[in-house]
Design a protein around this nucleic acid. Structure first.
Lengths: 336, 336
DNA sequence: CTGAAAGCGCTTACAG
DNA sequence: CTGAAAGCGCTTACAG
């Protein structure tokens, strides 16, 4: 397996190395006839450019970084798949960087990473999208980035997002359609933009239906199974319990289901439960869980393509379009 | 952020570039006094070697590849975390490569990857550990690899493994201890070494208890929720149903739980259920699932360290030690 | 539209 | 124990 290099292709095609380079990089200004000769030689020799040499010469690593800190492995995996799709398409490599957002040494670790690997760009997910120190560091290293986030206020255009407010309202509409009027809500972690938006969708849907927010129907689930179970038990043991509970994540919905089971409340006959995220567990619970599918893979791919396009053109052209969430109705919700 | 280079450090320290290189790479044969001068300069300038230049010059990418195809996102995430730990420790980068093992173009894709990225080594997980074509390709590219696998026969020493046979026997012992004698088994995909080993542990445990294998107690679950539900229903609707069902993966155990619920069989009162893998769903199901924890993160880290050690020393020294699985008893199993 | 020369920042022999 | 020279395989200006 002797490595084939640019010069070998040039020799075979009878052109200069520079011309081969032009063809490899899809640069304009090569006569069709010449291009064909080169492509033929590339194919014949099975040439693949050496990434290290490309990086060194062009002063770009051909690498993009992905930083995340999310308890849901399903989310992480889909995220990676989406970004990888964009990477493969454009010949970029992916450096994954799972991080603990509470880690004090985070900035230092990122700094070392940026200095040694010299990533051409970065993709950030919550809560790093809201971390000023991280954003400042990237600016300092002049590393372009794209955020994947449920935010909709345009603080930056380097953003790929879902509209969690309307997704939440869509879920509420499903419950209203089934006849529910008394609907409980399990909130995620405070100050996380995603949870705020989901909650605000709940409130807006209530208002649109002429209902006002009843604080006794809302409880904190902190995005965990355990806290949601406790919260749901509290909601269900009141005099006038809800007929449906909307948990703003699937893990929390699983906790609600557990609380209901423990209280001998049958789902969906006596209580409808719905989640958010379409985590795999939604299909494995009994009953299966009505939820909202977040097109994470698509979002991530779009983020990757947006970033790479910007890197290539050094322009700010590429625009992200919001991606619709999808309501998945399963067994856990039913008519009142 | 002008990049600091080797020569800058050399100038400041008053030595040659080669000497700085020696210090950076921990090469022996540098006078302590010289070394200190260099380290001081490195610190002062905050120097980090350019990976691309290192790769090009030394003809090693400082990258290791991880190839997997597993439906469980929890497994994938833990796997990555473990390997990343080893990578961080030794300054290697990780290239993840999720693949479909049924993909016809797989070999070609891998070939391109090997040719362009020139990974120094690879870590393989099932079913690629059993794929001759992949192994041959790696040999052709002289790319060292380490396998993470439930195999125990020493076809190669480049192997980090768990002993699924004894893990399976351990689970059986738990059921015997609870008084169960009629124990059903849901098999995973045939010809996958993991499922064969788990099944063989089941059989050996039966024999050790003076019981013989009853084919009516065994059904195929194909490692999926859906198939396991069907399989469990079959086992449970016989004249003489099992009092416990051992599903050889948690996803399949979730399917068994669904079948039991549909048949109005209460768990664990009338039926004990246990799984394998300690997937997160094991904690989110109601009742929570007794299962076997596979120390995937530890395994992966060991695999990473084994590989990198070999790459560095170009030796075959580092030895992997088998890692014990751990029985996790939860609500889904109880006395007969 | 095409090419010859210089250079990216390291490491590899080799020499002393 | 230390260093000067050449080279890794590309791309970047620049020239024609």
């Amino acid at each position: 397996m002797k490595a084939v290099k640019l010069q070998d292709v040039a020799d075979l095609a009878g052109v200069s190395a520079k011309t081969v380079s032009r063809v490899v990089n899809h640069e304009a200004g090569v006569r069709d006839q010449t291009k064909e000769k080169v492509l033929k030689a590339i194919n014949e020799l099975n040439f693949t450019p050496n990434k290290s040499a490309q990086s060194l010469a062009a002063d770009r690593s051909l690498l993009i970084g992905l930083i995340y800190d999310n308890p849901s492995t399903a989310y992480i995996t889909r995220l990676q798949e989406g970004v990888l799709r964009a990477c493969d398409k454009f010949g970029y490599g992916l450096v994954i960087h799972p991080s603990d957002h509470r880690d004090i040494g985070l900035i230092k670790v990122l700094q070392t990473l940026l200095a040694s690997t010299r990533m051409d760009g970065m993709i950030l997910t919550p809560p790093f999208t809201e971390n000023e120190a991280v954003l400042d560091l990237l600016a300092e290293y002049r590393t372009p980035y794209v955020l994947i986030s449920p935010l909709d206020h345009q603080q930056t255009d380097a953003l790929v997002f879902t509209d969690d407010v309307s997704a939440s309202m869509q879920m509420m509409q499903h419950l209203f359609d089934l006849g529910h009027q008394r609907i409980g809500f399990i909130r995620g972690l405070r100050h996380r933009s995603g949870s705020e938006m989901r909650f605000s969708g709940y409130v807006r849907a209530l208002h649109r239906h002429g209902l006002s927010l009843d604080p006794r129907l809302v409880a904190d689930g902190k995005f965990t199974f355990e806290a949601a179970e406790v919260a749901a038990q509290k909601l269900l043991e009141t005099d006038h319990p809800p007929t449906a509970i909307f948990a703003s994540s699937d893990y929390m919905a699983a906790g609600v289901l557990k609380a209901a089971t423990n209280l001998n409340i049958s789902v969906p006959t006596q209580l409808s439960i719905c989640g958010f995220d379409d985590n795999p567990i939604a299909r494995y619970l009994t009953p299966t869980l009505t939820t909202m599918r977040h097109p994470v893979r698509k979002l991530a791919q779009q983020a990757g393509e947006l970033l790479i396009t910007r890197l290539k053109q050094n322009l700010e052209t590429a625009e992200a379009t919001p991606i619709q969430s999808e309501l998945i109705v399963r067994e856990s919700t039913g008519p009142i």
